[in-house]
Amino acid sequence: MSITYLEAIREAQARALKDDPRVFIYGQDVGAFGGAFKATKNLAKEFPGRVLDSPISEDAMMGLAVGAAIEGLRPIIEMQFADFSTVGFNQIVNQAATLFWRTNVPCPVTVRLPCGGTSGSGPFHSQMMEAIYAHYPGLIVLTPATVEDAYSMLLEAVAIDDPVIFCEHKFLYYHLKADKLPDTALPVGKARIAREGRDLTIVTYSAMVHECVAAANELASEGWQIEVVDLRSVKPLDTDTVIASVARTGRLLCVGEAWPWGGVTAEVIARVASEGYELLDAPPQRLNARNTPVPYHPNLWTAHRPTARAVVSAARKLLRT
């Protein structure tokens, strides 16, 4: 018996609906059809009236969620693709993110963003949105990299009293598997050491965790011990775990699938540079996607995002510095 990353997301929603009558799911095709990726498969049948198709209206979907949250409910909004959340951007960053600060009324909305690239998906079905949402005060931004985290962090997201942007990576949906769902989990805000090492710290999150672990395994055959830190949540960002790791290794490489300008990798480097400068034996480095829209063709797509091979190359260079 094994469970995929996607099934874990479906199971977390089933459990949230079962355990908490305040939870409902609203999004395009999430009802009888079960969602474009089947993340809500059979949920409309199991929980009548609580898993509802929305019109193609991301702005109104988010506005409705905020209104329902004001009434004490805990909506889960499925954006069909993270890319389309830009159409609902205003309601997320100006309505949901400001509500508590302005009025003292919490806004417990979970927004699921199927994010990241898969081959053949092109510029508008592949984007990583975590940096843009993390920029706004009042939002929590989660980026689970494992089946276990997809499950436990989605359940925690629904329980959090603030708006949560849940970035679930489409590349991990089907091929990432676990034996069973977890009984316990690290809380949101704690990073995880995905692989221990002493020569170099790679800080990463979401699907890039797997590219980085693969890179670390390859470098291990050359005798290098690479530590991989999986941030799990990019906001809040667990600076302590990152700094502690850099204190052990003296070298930092940040890897993200998002675009290079600003963003999570830049934030991590800024924090380490200002709070742990004396721990660094070499200038910290970043590896991101290329600074273009995400390409369609696999030849271009595999060269656009960081891969294990690109991580190995960047790590080798840094290890020699």
């Binding site: 209206s57 988010m62 506005g63 209104g67 009434e71």
Partner: peptide, 11 residues
Amino acid sequence: AMISVVNGVLF
């Protein structure tokens, strides 16, 4: 932007 929030309260 407030109209769909009213919808949400009613919903």
